[in-house]
């Protein structure tokens, strides 16, 4: 006999995370191949996962600070969002490296050459700041994801652990916004294209 189970907030978020990221990723890769714009599709995924990681972090802070749900559900939501953010940061680095290989070509038509000719400051130090500071993200997101899995309900019951999580995530979001800004300025001059 089939027993209908209620669609909880935890399940809804899990389905949305897996569904949306899969549809967007597969869709962009297929679209990129169909119109022969592979680099562009990688860069769109790069931007998508950057926004997704920042939103996941904001979501964790929201649940930690404002949750009125049972702790068990809230803990599961935080765990999923923190894993989603950590995976997103890894995807950001992979897609970023794909774009970087194209960006740094010595070809006069490459994005780097155009940016250096138009506004050299946008390449060095701005673009380089994004490249190198962005590398801190994988370890940082991994740390937050592990702490969320380790501390479980203590994130709500222990003020020191709750404050530590909020501080680590808030700071990570500030870093991500700064790093994104360092990348947005150069790509407004010349975007990475294949």
């Amino acid at each position: 006999m089939l027993v209908s189970r209620p669609l909880t907030a935890t399940k809804t978020i899990l389905f949305l995370i897996i569904g949306i990221t899969t549809i967007v990723s597969v869709g962009m890769v297929i679209l990129g191949h169909l119109v022969d714009k592979k680099i562009e599709s990688a860069m769109i995924l790069h931007d998508f996962f950057t926004a997704f990681a920042i939103m996941s972090g904001a979501g964790v802070i929201g649940v930690l600070v404002f949750s009125s749900q049972r702790h068990h559900d809230a803990v599961n939501v935080i765990r999923m969002l923190s894993i989603a953010a950590a995976v997103s940061v890894f995807v950001i680095l992979i897609t970023g490296t794909i774009g970087y290989v194209e960006y740094r070509l010595s070809d006069p038509d490459s994005a780097k050459s155009k940016i250096k000719a138009t506004f050299p400051y946008a390449h060095s130090p701005m673009f380089e700041t994004m490249e190198y500071m962005g590398l801190l993200g994988t370890m940082w997101a991994g740390l937050i994801a592990y702490l969320a899995w380790h501390y479980k309900e203590q994130m709500f019951t222990n003020p020191a652990i709750k404050n530590m999580m909020v501080a680590l995530i808030s700071l990570a979001i500030m870093y991500a916004l700064f790093i994104s800004l360092m990348g947005i300025v150069p790509t407004k001059i010349a975007s990475v294209q294949g």
């Binding site: 190198y132 590398l135 801190l136 370890m139 940082w140 991994g142 740390l143 592990y146 702490l147 380790h150 222990n158 003020p159 020191a160 652990i161 404050n163």
Partner: peptide, 24 residues
């Protein structure tokens, strides 16, 4: 409140993350 003790597992991830961030 901030003097809450941490386990060895938590110390391990903090040390590994801090060292790798310094390496970057």
């Amino acid at each position: 409140a901030y003097s809450v003790k941490t386990t060895g597992k938590v110390a391990a991830v903090f040390i590994a993350t801090s060292v790798s961030i310094l390496m970057v």
